[in-house]
Structure formats: C-alpha cells, structure tokens
Deep mutational scan, measured.
Amino acid sequence: LELTLRVGDKTWHFKDVDEEFVRHLEELLKRGAHEREIEEIIREWLR
C-alpha cells in the first residue's frame, strides 16, 4: 500500500505501508486525534 497523509501543514508519503498501521491511523482519525498524537505515531512507525 502507498499512503499520503496530510496533517496540519505537514505531508507524508509512505510506500509499502503495513495495513495494520493504516487501520491504526484510521482509528486515531475517527476519534479525533490531535495533530501531535498523529505525528508521534508516525515517528514511532518510522523507527
């Protein structure tokens, strides 16, 4: 999967994204996660 995600003024483009990561992001967005929380999840995933 490829994913382009825009949060606030930042845009990330990922290739070979894990479906579990996408589901986790979807859940965060559904519950109205704040920009900082989403950025933290992305940084963790990139490690």
Rank of each mutant, 00 (worst) to 15 (best):
E26H: 10
H13R: 07
F14G: 00
L46C: 10
E39F: 06
E37I: 07
E37T: 07
E19G: 11
R31P: 02
H24L: 13
V7F: 06
D9L: 04
I41E: 13
H13D: 02
E37L: 05
K10T: 14
E27V: 09
H34M: 09
F21W: 08
H13Q: 06
H24A: 09
E27Q: 11
E44M: 06
W12R: 00
H24D: 08
D18P: 12
E39T: 10
R47F: 11
L25H: 00
E2M: 05
K30P: 01
W12Y: 15
K10Q: 09
F14A: 00
E40N: 10
R31A: 14
L28P: 01
F21V: 04
L5M: 05
R36F: 11
E2R: 05
F21Y: 02
K10E: 06
D9P: 03
E20K: 15
D16G: 12
F14W: 01
L46K: 05
R36P: 06
V22W: 03
L5D: 01
W45R: 03
R31G: 12
W12T: 00
R31N: 15
H24W: 07
I38A: 02
R31Q: 14
I41Y: 15
W12S: 00
R31E: 11
L28A: 11
L5Q: 00
V7H: 03
E2T: 10
G8N: 08
E19M: 12
G32I: 04
H13F: 11
L46P: 03
L1M: 11
V22N: 01
L1T: 12
E39V: 08
I38R: 01
I38Q: 02
W45I: 04
E35G: 06
L5E: 00
E35S: 08
E2Y: 04
R36K: 14
I42T: 01
R47G: 13
D18E: 10
L25Y: 02
V7T: 03
E27W: 08
R6N: 15
R23P: 01
I38M: 06
R23W: 08
H13N: 06
R31W: 10
H13L: 06
T11D: 08
L3A: 04
I42P: 00
L3M: 06
F14Q: 00
L3T: 05
T4M: 07
L5N: 00
R23E: 07
F21H: 02
E35N: 09
F14T: 00
I41Q: 08
R23V: 05
H34E: 13
E40I: 09
R6M: 15
R23Q: 09
H24G: 12
F21S: 05
V22L: 04
E20H: 12
G8K: 02
E20V: 14
I41P: 00
V17D: 12
L3I: 14
L1I: 11
T11A: 04
L1G: 15
V17M: 05
V7A: 03
L29V: 15
E2D: 15
E44W: 03
F21C: 01
T4P: 03
K10A: 07
V7G: 01
E35Q: 11
L46E: 14
T11W: 08
G32L: 03
W12I: 03
E2I: 09
E37K: 07
L25I: 10
I41V: 15
T11K: 03
R36I: 12
E20N: 14
E2Q: 08
G32K: 00
E44F: 04
R23D: 05
R43G: 09
E19N: 08
R23T: 09
H13S: 06
F14V: 04
D16N: 14
D16K: 15
E37Q: 09
L1C: 07
I38S: 01
K15R: 13
L29Y: 07
I42R: 00
D18G: 03
H13C: 06
K30V: 10
E37F: 07
F14Y: 01
V22I: 07
R23A: 10
K30T: 13
L25N: 00
V22A: 04
L3S: 03
V7Q: 01
R47W: 11
E19K: 15
R23H: 10
E20Y: 12
E20A: 14
T4A: 07
I41C: 05
I41L: 11
R31D: 13
W12Q: 00
L25P: 00
L5C: 03
A33N: 07
I41H: 10
L29E: 03
D16P: 13
W12D: 00
W45M: 07
L5F: 12
R43T: 13
V7R: 01
F14K: 00
T4W: 08
V7D: 01
E37P: 02
D18M: 02
L3V: 11
F21I: 04
D9H: 06
H24S: 14
L25D: 00
L29T: 08
E39W: 05
L1A: 09
E27L: 09
L3C: 01
G8P: 00
R47E: 14
L1R: 12
E40A: 12
F21E: 03
G8I: 01
G8M: 03
E39I: 07
F21L: 04
E2K: 06
